[in-house]
């Protein structure tokens, strides 16, 4: 039986980890290399690295972090942030990433999703969807939550799966960093709308939030940043908590 995944997310800015609230007010959360070592020792199910700076310097630092992570930890690594071309993808894969997360370009250049999928396989392309809700309903946002689009997240998810995305990484800007629980409603809408696995991010503040997502929706994975950054929580404890609630979790040995 396929297990549910719990995935730590490392947001990166110029080679340092950062974490904010609703995609703003970022604060420094330490050295990613140290975090990678800890997550490796705790046998995280996989790691996601997202560069939120999208500058040349920040990209170079991301590549270096991926390179080091790939030599130290034997788990799946996903990387994203500012990916605009097949060359960007190849650079990350050669550094040691197993898959890439494409969010803004999935809106501005959806053909890139298909191009990556044809070249490297659909397992290699995770399509990111950042969204927020207002009176008009939910809309997709791009460029790290600084630019709104008119796209409906559910429709967008369906399109991305049809274009060749192997997984969807769904991120609620409204819930980001608040640690008050995931947007379960949207998680279920998207997960039931697409035939590919959906990773849900944004809002996890305690293990019960992970359990709600993994038990009450058809999401395949719970991603979280603040939960593991701030506080005494780690993937080992998360797994045993969730297993005790009857959620299928990975057995290591």
């Amino acid at each position: 039986m396929l297990k549910k995944r719990v995935i730590p997310v490392l947001l990166l800015r110029d080679g340092r980890m950062a974490k904010g609230v609703q995609f703003g007010n970022y604060r420094d959360t330490g050295n990613p290399k140290t975090a990678v070592r800890i997550y490796s020792a705790q046998d995280a199910d996989e790691l996601v690295f997202l560069d939120i700076q999208a500058s040349l310097q920040s990209r170079t630092a991301l590549l270096e972090i991926i390179r080091e992570a790939a030599t130290e930890c034997f788990m799946p690594l996903a990387a994203g942030g500012g990916i605009e071309s097949i060359d960007d993808v190849r650079e990350l894969l050669l550094a040691g990433a197993d898959k890439v997360v494409v969010t803004t370009a999935a809106v501005t250049n959806p053909g890139l999703i298909t191009a990556i999928s044809e070249r490297f396989g659909n397992q290699c392309v995770v399509a990111g969807i950042d969204y927020r809700c207002d009176a008009d309903g939910a809309k997709v946002w791009i460029r790290c939550g600084t630019e709104a689009t008119q796209l409906d997240p559910v429709e967008h998810a369906r399109n991305l799966a049809a274009l060749g995305a192997g997984e969807i990484f769904l991120n609620s800007i409204d819930h980001d960093g608040l640690m008050d629980g995931y947007d379960l409603d949207m998680a279920e809408k998207i997960a039931s709308a697409v035939s590919v696995p959906v990773i849900v991010c944004g809002g996890a503040g305690n293990f019960m939030h992970l359990a709600e997502l993994l038990k009450d929706t058809s999401a395949s994975a719970a991603a979280c940043a603040s939960l593991f950054h701030f506080g005494d929580n780690n993937p080992i404890r998360a797994r045993s908590y969730l297993r005790n609630l009857g959620i299928p979790m990975r057995v290591l040995k």
């Binding site: 039986m1 396929l2 297990k3 549910k4 995944r5 199910d45 659909n122 397992q123 192997g166 997984e167 697409v194 035939s195 590919v196 696995p197 058809s218 395949s220 994975a221 990975r250 057995v251 040995k253």
Partner: peptide, 25 residues
């Protein structure tokens, strides 16, 4: 409700005793 691609962690049903699977429960 399984979704394709099959992504993530899953276990093996050993079909035979073999040295390649030694030490793997």
């Amino acid at each position: 409700p399984n979704k394709v691609p099959h992504v993530g962690w899953n276990s093996l049903n050993h079909a035979m005793r073999h040295s390649l699977l030694e030490g793997v429960k």
